[in-house]
């Protein structure tokens, strides 16, 4: 159950949350908390339910069991492939949450949109449509749309997947910049060690529907946790059964 509780001690409090799709349990009694100005990275092999956490926090799906307590309902989400409305321009996409959910004047909206686009280095692209943008630019417009309403919670879904190293680096800089300028709590779902290293404050690792590792970024460098060790060293041998033998 998603609960908005302004007096909650944490911005995001995930309490013993379980979620199954059919017979497949993707989360079982998962708990964690994220505070103000803190970014949590959720890592783990593909298909273990990392994005499910984002969907639960954003309210797109409901938990089967447990509670998700948020101190605010002001959320922004940067989607894996941008998810920009393809019939709107960049400016209209970023302005959409302001037009629909605030009573700001047109000039105030224009100003906020300008600063949001400037924060992700996309001034000058206002009148382009999503199909005129590269994948990286679409993600950055998605960031701008996610933060234009000054949210208390920002969710990032695979922010660097499918991008070249230079664009990934720009995206990571964008996240770091947003973290400094916007006092929000964030969750990043990623596989990218660079994102974790430069943007996250702490991480949890999901495997077999459970949290198998939780710690700060500093802990990560000295951890002896076999799951974290296997994941970051890209090994087939270890507690996670993710490698399929080809018989060769």
């Amino acid at each position: 159950m998603l609960i908005i509780e302004p007096n909650s001690p944490h911005i995001i409090d995930f309490i013993k949350v379980s979620k199954a799709f059919g017979n497949k349990h993707v989360l079982k009694d998962v708990s964690f908390a994220v505070d103000k100005n803190e970014i949590l990275a959720v890592i783990g092999p593909s298909g273990v339910g990392k994005s499910t956490i984002l969907k639960l926090v954003s309210g797109l799906i409901e938990a089967d069991d447990g509670h998700i307590v948020l101190s605010s309902n002001k959320k922004g989400m940067a989607f894996q492939f941008g998810a920009l409305l393809n019939f709107l321009t960049v400016k209209e996409n970023v302005a959409l949450p302001l037009r629909k959910k605030t009573h700001l004047s047109n000039s105030e909206i224009d100003t906020k949109v300008y600063y949001a686009l400037e924060s992700v280095g996309l001034t000058g692209a206002e009148n382009l449509t999503p199909d005129e943008l590269s994948g990286g630019m679409q993600k950055r417009v998605s960031f701008a749309r996610a933060v234009v309403n000054d949210p208390d919670i920002i969710l990032y879904d695979e922010p660097t997947s499918g991008l070249d190293p230079m664009t990934s680096s720009m995206i990571i800089n964008d996240i770091s910049h947003l973290k400094k300028t916007l006092p929000a709590a964030g969750i990043i779902v990623t596989h990218d060690i660079n994102v974790i290293d430069k943007a996250a404050d702490k991480i949890i690792m999901i495997y077999d529907a459970k949290v198998v590792y939780a710690g700060t970024i500093r802990d990560l460098k000295t951890t002896t946790n076999p799951f974290a060790d296997q994941f970051f060293n890209g090994m087939c041998d270890g507690p996670m059964k993710i490698c399929v033998s080809t018989g060769v």
């Binding site: 969907k55 954003s58 309210g59 797109l60 309902n73 959320k75 922004g76 989400m77 989607f79 894996q80 492939f81 998810a83 920009l84 409305l85 393809n86 959409l96 949450p97 629909k100 959910k101 998605s142 749309r145 969710l155």
Partner: peptide
Amino acid sequence: SMKVTEQIDALRVMDI
């Protein structure tokens, strides 16, 4: 197409 490209989800997250 909007559904499979998460545009509908984006609207829902924006509370639209």
